[in-house]
Simulated assay, not measured.
Amino acid sequence: MARLALGLGGLLLAATAVAHDFRVGDLVIDHPYAVPSPAGAANGVAYLRGIRNRGTVPDRLLGASTSVAQRIELHEMRMDGEVMRMREVPGIDLPPGQEVSLRHGQRYHFMLVKLDKPLAVGDRFEMTLRFEKAGEYKVPVEVQQPRAHHHGH
């Protein structure tokens, strides 16, 4: 019986370790991750597969912070003719019943400004997300090699 309990506990721990969704109120934060930064790079990039607002009231992502960088900026990428432009935005709207992607290669991402050290595959850190209505929420971030080509910073 004790062996079964230990086995089930181990399975529960393993399932928890691979969980990538986090709930804060009506918001579901899906798979926070960052990509490796080149040696000597001052900045890094972090992403979320998305944020789903399962509620009936809009919310807004206002910003984020972490101990591995001096600050985090919310960035938006848009095509301006044939040129990709990136700019800091004051927030990201989270409409009710919708999902907003902050994935690598998509419209939005987190710019980690003035890293303490370059990010390497396997590194882990916490990032605190700040929402207008849902408040602050800490998520664990793992540095992973991206599957698609990165737009570069």
Rank of each mutant, 00 (worst) to 15 (best):
S101A: 13
V121T: 14
R130L: 03
R130T: 10
K117R: 14
P118I: 02
L102A: 02
H104W: 03
Q106A: 13
Y108S: 05
V121N: 08
V100L: 07
H109M: 12
L102T: 00
Q98W: 03
V121A: 15
S101W: 02
L119T: 01
M127T: 03
R124D: 06
R103N: 14
Q106L: 11
F131Q: 00
G105H: 00
Q106P: 00
E126F: 08
R103W: 07
Q106D: 15
F125N: 04
L119D: 00
P118V: 12
F125Q: 07
A120T: 14
V121I: 11
R124H: 07
P96V: 02
H109A: 13
Q106Y: 12
P96G: 09
R103I: 04
V100Y: 00
P118A: 15
H104C: 08
V100T: 13
G97I: 08
F131I: 03
R107L: 13
R130A: 10
K114A: 14
M111L: 15
F131G: 00
M111P: 01
V113F: 08
D116L: 11
V121L: 07
P118S: 14
P96H: 06
A120G: 08
R124M: 10
A120W: 08
E99L: 08
Y108C: 08
E126D: 14
L115R: 05
Q98Y: 08
